[in-house]
């Protein structure tokens, strides 16, 4: 028991690492905020391309999404940082990290956005068009506001996965949590820094997991029995679609908190 504390919860190393690791958080946040904004924007664009009636646009987006969904993110990070350098394209570790997240998570979130857009009943688009709106006016004013509300829970799950995947950037020397913890472990010959890193990860992820679960249960609030089903209701098929699009996260199937 004494050894266990000595190995994994060494008080002195714990204190030292805690401070050291907290100092990496601004970089982690920077990468995450950029990754979040860029990957969701890219994902939305990809989703719209995927739904385009122009065959080429649609196929290109489809191929992109399939490719990056199938690719290990770790490989992508290494390719961007080390692989591209050989061709003379030298990106900083952080830029490589953000690019990798955007390319990969863009593909994940594209599927979520697509499922969200397709979950909106056809009558909404028809009503908007019948009022004289163009396709893009209808998308912007009618479809997207509803679709985005629908995809917030799966996108939150996506974000949780993204937080965890920042640790993969340790292989391209982004001074984030895992990278710094591993270095400290090397110096101290003690795994306590990993314990600290683990704690910091879950301090951020667990509240988000709870938030996602709550958003999810609220969205699926059953229709009151006195209100008849209307065309505005999301169909069970669309629900299933949304679920299957949630690749990176693990959407709670039942009720959570």
């Amino acid at each position: 028991m004494g050894n266990l504390i000595e190995y994994y919860f060494n008080p002195e190393i714990f204190r030292e690492s805690l401070w050291l690791l907290i100092k990496t958080l601004p970089i982690v946040f920077e990468v995450l905020v950029m990754g979040l904004v860029l990957s969701y924007a890219w994902g939305l664009l990809l989703a719209l391309m995927r739904l385009s009636r122009v065959g080429v646009v649609n196929k290109v987006a489809g191929a992109y999404i399939d490719f990056f969904r199938g690719l290990p993110l770790l490989l992508l990070f290494i390719f961007i940082y080390y692989g591209l350098a050989i061709a003379g394209i030298k990106l900083s570790a952080i830029a490589s990290g953000v690019l990798g997240l955007t390319l990969c998570y863009g593909a994940y979130s594209a599927e979520i956005f697509r499922a969200g857009i397709q979950a909106i009943p056809k009558g909404q688009m028809e009503a908007a068009r019948s009022l004289g709106m163009t396709g893009s006016q209808a998308m912007l004013n009618v479809i997207l506001p509803q679709a985005i509300k629908l995809v917030i829970p799966p996108l939150t799950n996506e974000f949780i996965a993204m937080i965890k995947d920042t640790s993969l950037m340790s292989v391209i020397a982004v001074p984030e949590l895992l990278f710094t913890a591993k270095e400290k472990m090397g110096v101290t010959a003690n795994p306590t820094p990993l314990t600290v890193a683990a704690i910091i990860y879950v301090v951020f992820t667990i509240p988000l997991i709870r938030v996602a679960a709550r958003l999810e249960t609220r969205r699926r609030k059953p229709r009151p029995p006195d209100r008849p089903a209307t065309a505005g209701d999301i169909s069970p098929e669309a629900e299933a679609q949304l679920h299957s699009a949630d690749i990176a996260g693990q959407m709670p199937k039942g009720g959570y908190g």
Partner: peptide, 20 residues
Amino acid sequence: PNKIRQRIGMVFQSFNLFPH
């Protein structure tokens, strides 16, 4: 056709109001 549709109002069986 968007211009022409502005002159034609349409009401649907399933209302299709914008729920948001």
